[in-house]
Nucleic acid binder design. Structure first.
Lengths: 174, 174
DNA sequence: ACCTGAACACCGTTCAAGT
DNA sequence: ACCTGAACACCGTTCAAGT
């Protein structure tokens, strides 16, 4: 006797993203998600293989959301501030995306704009090297900030600007 | 009737570090630690408040081990390669230390050598800014490497060297 | 064809009882 | 004074039974 589904993969991922932000990754339990979409935990396994697969779907959805929010810019400042603003609003999503929980395909696709920027700043021969320098610095900085690693005082905003300025000039100087 | 302890906090932390590296943070269960030190899980609570406190002790022990392994160097290349080599040998410890699981005191103490390097490269006025640029880049790079984020081909070793070279010249140019 | 309750193996944690 | 078994509340996951 066929019955229509009472939930959907979209509703599950959407509810999961909200739970992730409000309760962190440990709070993203199958039971919490099930309750949010109005179903019992075992029913989720009709739509998703297991919790790990769900976490990957959430990470990929967050990565796509990030890509849509980043300004189409040609300068490091715009990209850096865009990423930092997105991370400040969705810290748990940021952590998930940059902790390697996403799929390799989505991670590669999301990094294309940075390679373009790397080409602009570093030149054709060092496009990838420059993109990796930029990405490592900006994701490292934001991760440290979210982890509360800046304990030695000083102006964190100024340190971010300092990084943007020094990296821009370092990459332009061929 | 007093009885001597059958284990110790040192044995617990030491066993925990080995379990962390071999089975990851999810594998670091109270039961696994208890078995490793020859005791039942409830006994661990005589030595540690709860699992979170144990994880913090492990992170701090790893951070101290890292500080002891870093070369006392005045150049970025030595520091960067030293950190990367340590991370390659103890990837789970590296992740734990730089994910904010450690205590703030140990994190601050461990970052002192980088501030010294920042002063050498960036000058007195920008010692902290330079230290944060360096730390953000090198930890970001290694985190990406461990997360398998370098999927676009190219030479990762060369990208690391490129970062060292560009950062060194960017910071020296006052 | 999907949803459910019941069940299983695992967690972290508490606590009265043993020595 | 430390260790233990038993217990509790919680996980993820499976599966036969319902509709």
């Amino acid at each position: 006797m066929p019955t229509p589904p009472r939930t959907s993969i979209d509703a599950i991922v959407s509810a999961s993203r909200a739970i992730l932000e409000s309760h962190g990754l440990p709070g993203l339990t199958m039971q919490a998600v099930a309750q949010a979409v109005g179903v019992r935990a075992p029913s989720l396994y009709k739509h998703v293989a297991d919790r790990d697969a769900l976490v990957t779907l959430v990470a990929d959805a967050a990565a796509r959301d990030l890509a849509a929010h980043l300004p189409a810019t040609e300068d490091l400042r715009g990209l850096a501030h865009g990423l930092r603003a997105w991370a400040a609003e969705r810290p748990e999503s940021y952590r998930l995306v940059f902790s390697g929980h996403g799929s390799l395909e989505v991670m590669a696709a999301t990094s294309m704009p940075v390679v373009t920027l790397g080409r602009t700043l570093g030149g054709e021969a060092h496009a990838l090297d420059a993109a990796r320098l930029i990405t490592a610095w900006v994701t490292g900085f934001i991760s440290m900030e979210l982890a509360g690693a800046f304990q030695l005082g000083g102006d964190v905003e100024a340190a971010f600007e300092y990084g943007i300025e020094r990296l821009t000039s370092a990459l332009s100087a061929n």
